[in-house]
Design a protein around this nucleic acid. Structure first.
Lengths: 340, 340
DNA sequence: TTGTACGCGTTATCAC
DNA sequence: GTGATAACGCGTACAA
């Protein structure tokens, strides 16, 4: 590949001059500039960002470490971060932990060896003390932004998270506001911290409204369409007087909707359905819906904002983003109140 | 940060010795190795992959350029590529084109400046001649693997794609095999090349079986759940004698399913539903289903395989992956035959 | 088994 | 305005 040196020789000037021209330094004559630029273009010069970075000690490299992107929730997050990073002139490494601590450590070490200037991390959930690699991040003073609900040991890092409890409560309040009093909750696996947060939001919503909590209305139903479907069938069988339904995510909600419909339950007159929109984004799930939108995209933007400040020497910062309620768009189809 | 030099000084050896130790060179004594290693560990040495790369002229960097990840289809692809790349010791840059040619060019130039050794690209669709940046890739001889259906100008690059026509035909054949003769097709927007391919597969499936093509059975219905729902309602109204339904994707299929159920249509006795699984992955959409699985994950693996060969100087290679039919898992819920 | 000299491609610094 | 020199951190080649 063409180097500054090659251009310099053909132009009859020094390497330094070429370097300055290509960075548009102020102390080079217009004549030289245009001559050298033309030559660089003609010779197909491609700058060598790594070499430049070695010299300037600024790599403009960031790393994004996530469990895996089977979960499309991350898509919007990645998208937002990449987009802002790009605008700021950073390149983004993508790496997966697959939820394995050893892999997480390996991945982070490799990114450190690449001299990333900052890291976005969704840590592998684990109990106990600060893992060595995280201690390392602190020791090296690597700007790090933790995304989402995080283990205790992340307290010293910057963090952005959605207010999942608040968002779920808002859904519950919405359903209560529509007059529903018997709201079934499809709870998902309890190990998931976010599922727990959503259930907690449901509890608080009821409590705030003085509605009694009835644990027969809580269905431990997993998190898939099929799980939701089964819960829907069960719901019909049990005759608990349920008039509304809140799912831990949108798949469960859709499954339950199918389950209810398959049993001849009329919707939406009889039942309102709500759930977090993990899989179906607002654009994709264009069912008419009252949406409580969880700000996944804004989450990414906020994360990059914090990173930007950290890179400029700012202090760690923690933010919790609130969800927002969007109005229902139409009533043509069954109402699925989805919390994106 | 600690450099080889620092370790060398404290260990009382030369930089070269330290360098060799850390790369586990064979010509260093065991004693020196353990002493230097211990010191490196103690001092918290982090290797500098960029500097090493500058010297060895091997960056072990790859770039993945996609339109944007709002479309979760890419998730599995990214996942597979990143995973294989990681195993082979490569780091992966992620960049979005947002479907804009200018942004695509900018993104690719920046990755070239990073000295990526190879590129995976989903090109921005455009008509006409080879865009300058792609000519550049050829000139620079950058190993490039084009993913998916690609514009004509990509003929000279390696490529992996799914056989969308064949996959869709397989779904149709499956439905025909179940005895259905009147299969509605929810066609999606015709601008999408993949939607066209899927419709074409449907046509061929019918033709092979000698079943007449009836364009009243084709519904131009968009690609969302709501679109599917509307199509489902329309379907019931029109009484076309439809007994099975094939959607251009899974959202449409689910929407249509809801539409049918909402009208009291009995499923699956009356109707079989099929669609491409763009949004709901096999793991998420655990409705009992006969699945025609499109190998998104395998697509990524194949792409990395080809890349691997290219990096070793192999010739360009084109592969088309076939879909595979998976058996139905259960009959508890409505059958949604999803093509993942 | 260990060390020396040099170069990878670029930029900071400062002299001309 | 322009250029000589050194350095960023590391590895190749070869000498000791």
């Amino acid at each position: 590949m063409v180097r500054l040196k090659d251009i310099a020789e053909r132009a009859g000037v020094s390497i330094m001059t070429v370097s300055k021209v290509l960075r548009d330094a102020p102390d080079i004559s217009g004549a030289t500039k245009s001559r050298v630029r033309a030559l660089a273009q003609e010779m197909g010069y491609v700058p060598h960002a790594l070499a430049a970075g070695l010299r300037t000690r600024a790599t403009r490299l960031l790393g994004l470490v996530i469990p895996g992107i089977i979960n499309p929730v991350y898509a919007r997050l990645i998208m937002a971060i990449e987009d802002r990073a790009f605008e700021l002139g950073f390149e983004l490494f993508l790496a997966h932990t697959l939820e394995k601590p050893e892999r997480e450590e390996l991945v982070l070490r490799r990114l450190l060896a690449r001299r990333v200037e900052g890291l976005f991390v969704i840590p592998v959930a684990r109990l106990g003390d600060t893992p060595g690699i995280y201690a390392e991040l602190i020791r090296l003073n690597i700007p790090t932004v933790v995304l989402g609900l995080a283990p205790r040991f992340c307290d010293r890092f910057s963090r952005v998270a959605n207010d999942e409890v608040g968002a779920s409560r808002e859904i519950t309040q919405h359903l209560l506001g529509l007059g529903h009093r018997r709201i079934a909750f499809l709870a998902g696996p309890t190990v998931s911290p976010s599922a727990q947060a959503r259930l907690e939001g449901y509890r608080r919503g009821l409590r705030d409204a003085g509605v009694e909590f009835d644990d027969r209305l809580i269905f431990q139903c997993g998190s898939t369409v099929e799980d939701g479907f089964q819960a829907g069938l069960e719901l019909v069988r049990e005759s608990l007087g349920v008039t509304a339904l809140q799912g831990v995510n949108d798949l469960v909600a859709i499954g339950a909707l199918n389950g209810l419909l398959s049993q001849g339950v009329r919707v939406p007159e009889d039942v309102s359905i709500a759930g977090f929109g993990n899989i179906l984004s607002a654009e994709n799930a264009r069912v008419p819906l009252t949406t409580v939108r969880e700000p996944k995209f804004r989450l990414g933007i906020a994360a990059m904002e914090i990173m930007h400040k950290l890179l400029q020497g700012g202090p760690p910062e923690q933010r919790v983003l609130r969800a927002e309620l969007l109005p229902r768009r139409s009533t043509a189809a069954p109402a699925v109140n989805t919390l994106i």
